[in-house]
Design a protein around this nucleic acid. Sequence first.
DNA 1: TGATTATATGTAAATCAAGACATATTCGCA
DNA 2: TGCGAATATGTCTTGATTTACATATAATCA
Lengths: 178, 178
Amino acid sequence: MNTLSYGLLSLLSNASNSGYDLMLKLQPFWPAKHSQIYPLLAQLDQDGYVVHELVVQKDKPDKKVYSITEKGREALRAWLAKPADEPVHRDELTLKLYCLHEGDIADIRKLLHVRIEYSRDRMLWMHGKIEAYARQEQPPTLAVQLLMQKGLFHFQSDLAWAEWALLQLADRQPKQDN
Amino acid sequence: MNTLSYGLLSLLSNASNSGYDLMLKLQPFWPAKHSQIYPLLAQLDQDGYVVHELVVQKDKPDKKVYSITEKGREALRAWLAKPADEPVHRDELTLKLYCLHEGDIADIRKLLHVRIEYSRDRMLWMHGKIEAYARQEQPPTLAVQLLMQKGLFHFQSDLAWAEWALLQLADRQPKQDN
DNA sequence: TGATTATATGTAAATCAAGACATATTCGCA
DNA sequence: TGCGAATATGTCTTGATTTACATATAATCA
C-alpha cells in the first residue's frame, strides 16, 4: 500500500468513481497516469480495499465504478493517524535559473513568461472548480475548500515570484523583446 | 541526459564541486540521493560533459572534484533554450485532507501543525543561506537570489495556508488540544 | 467520410528514484 | 577508547513513474 493507493482510497471515501474519474480528480494533487492507476485499482480490488461494478453507458464507453469497503476505510483511518511524508517539489525552472549566466538571458525571460501563464491557468482552474460547485448549488466540502485554497495560495505566490524575478532581470540586464 | 544530469551541469557551470557537495546543493531544489548522483556523474564523465580530479584532504576523506567541459556548457545552453517541464508537486498532506471526514479531526490538526513547523524551518534555512553569503562579504549571485526568494515565497504561502486551514477547522469543529 | 477529441480500460518496457548494503576517514565527545 | 556524526564514494535491489503500445465507443467538426 503506497501513497497513491491511499490517494485513490481517499477519493473513494467521498464517492464511488471510475478509474478514469479518479485519475482526473487525482491529477491536480498527485500526478499519476492511467497506466499506474488501473493496475493499482485491480490490486486494491483483489486485496478487498475496494469493490467494483460494471456500468453500461449509452453515450460513452462502459466503465467500472469502484467503491471503498469497510476494510478500505479502516486502512484510511490508520494512514490518517500517521505523519505525512514531506512534500516533494521538482521544478526544472529552478535548475535552469541556476545557470542563468550561461546562455541567452532572453531564454530565461521566456521561461518566466511561460511560468506566469501557467500559474494563471492553474488559478483559473481552481476558481472554475469552486464556481462549478456554486452552479450546482452545492457548497464545496470543507476538504475541497482547503485543497482549492492551498492551490490558489501556491500558484498566487509562484505567479508573484515569477513577476518579481522578471523585474530583477530587467534591473540588471538590457531588456529584450520576446 | 535527463533533468538531474542538467541540474548537476548547472551547478558545475558555477563552480567545480565534489559529488557530495553537488548532492547537498541540489537537494533543496531537486531532491536526489547520492545513490542517484554518483553513477550519473560517472556517466557524464564518461560521455565527456565533465572531468574530475582527485583531491587529497587531510582533515576529511579524499574526494573527486568535477568540472564542466565545453561540451557540457554547450549541452547546457541547448537545454536552456528549450521550454522547462511543468513543475511536479506531490504532497501527501493534500491526499489526507481529502478524507478529513473519515477518522479523527485531531489527526488532521496535528498534520497541519507539523506542516507549519516544517515551513518555518525551511524559511529559516533560506534566510540562513542568504546571511551566510553576507558573512562572507560576497553578495549572492542573481541566480541564488532568485532561487532563495522563490523558496521563501513558496514556504511563506504554505505556512500562511496551513495557519488559515487550522482556523477553518476551528470554525467548524470543536477545538481539541494536541 | 475522415480526423480529432473525450471517454474508457488495459499491458509492457524503460526510466527514475528510494532504500538498503558497503566501506573508509576524521573529529569531537563521553 | 569507543561511539556517533559529518564527510566521502560507491553498488544493488526494489519500487514508483513515465512512455509507448493497444483497443474501443461516441461525439463533433471539417
